[in-house]
């Protein structure tokens, strides 16, 4: 589904991604861990199409298409979704109105008819239950004055609404209480299917108790320095990153 090879990206003079290789197949869940500043959010943003970064090398294919050549909105229409580490506040635009516009744009792009108000509301009710989000939150300005946890929950709600093929969750678990964490994880798991894939960026093994990954990768200084099965996350939790650093520096 997603095939990243030798991806290098910089901002200004600063190189942040230094040759990422990653293969993700439909049906898989990949966890990406790694110390602060290692480039996890940068990778996620580059995949979603943020224009601040310059891609200096490498390719990214999504279902065989050159992803790097597509505008962010076209990537969304192709089925990519990024749950932001820091969701943006948008005054004056309600989540409901925002999502209706987004959903219908994506449908238009795919040659589907737009949902009318009734259909949209029905879908919304259904997905609201899934992530246990309150109606009152959705009629307010998007993320404006939302608590940290509410913002994250809203990201998962949007994901549930848009049903992406590839969801990238950038630290969606941070700032969530235990109940919310479980709800978010359930939301992700309900979307799990043989046609879909998920990238979970996290610092904490506990999320991976709920969303069980097929692979765990460690990103360090812009490179994936270690990949392994889900047990790797436990090992990291126990031992920290020092041994990874030592290994990486030695290599």
């Amino acid at each position: 589904m997603l095939s990243i090879s030798n991806l290098q990206a910089s901002i200004g003079d600063k190189q942040i991604l230094k040759g990422i290789n990653l293969q993700i197949n439909a049906g898989e869940v990949h966890a990406i861990m790694g110390p602060n500043g290692s480039g996890k959010s940068t990778l996620a943003s580059v995949l979603a199409g943020r224009e601040d970064y310059e891609i200096t090398e490498g390719t990214v294919l999504f279902e065989g298409e050159d992803l790097l050549d597509m505008a962010p909105e076209d990537r969304a229409a192709a089925g990519i979704f990024l749950a932001f580490q820091y969701p943006v506040e948008i005054p004056g635009v309600s989540t409901t109105n925002f999502l209706k516009t987004a959903l219908n744009e994506i449908r238009k792009h795919r040659g589907q008819d737009p949902l009318d108000a009734v259909q949209f509301l029905k879908l919304m009710k259904e997905k609201m239950k899934l992530v246990n989000i309150d109606q009152s939150l959705l009629s307010r300005s998007l993320n404006e004055g939302f608590s940290g946890g509410e913002k994250k929950r809203n990201e998962v709600f949007q994901m549930a609404m848009l049903e992406p093929k590839l969801a990238i969750l950038d630290e969606t678990d941070s700032g969530l209480d235990i109940d919310a964490l479980r709800i978010v994880a359930e939301g992700v798991n309900k979307l799990r299917s043989p046609e879909r894939a998920t990238i979970v960026v996290t610092h904490y093994q506990r999320l991976l108790d709920y969303i069980i990954p097929d692979f765990v990768h460690v990103l360090y200084k812009g490179r994936i320095v270690k990949s392994g099965p889900k047990e790797l996350a436990l090992e990291l939790e126990e031992k920290g990153y020092d041994w990874i650093r030592a290994e990486a520096e030695a290599a």
Binding site: G49, A71, F81, L82, V88, I90, P91, G92, F98, L99
Partner: peptide, 28 residues
């Protein structure tokens, strides 16, 4: 607000429309 613009585009809203939506909310 470029951050807001990117957020909206990443959800599938084309650039021009995202801009209109943001500015309309500002004017409203």
């Amino acid at each position: 607000d470029e951050e807001a613009l990117f957020y909206m585009r990443s959800r599938g809203i084309p650039k021009d429309e995202a801009k209109t939506l943001l500015m309309y909310a500002f004017a409203e």
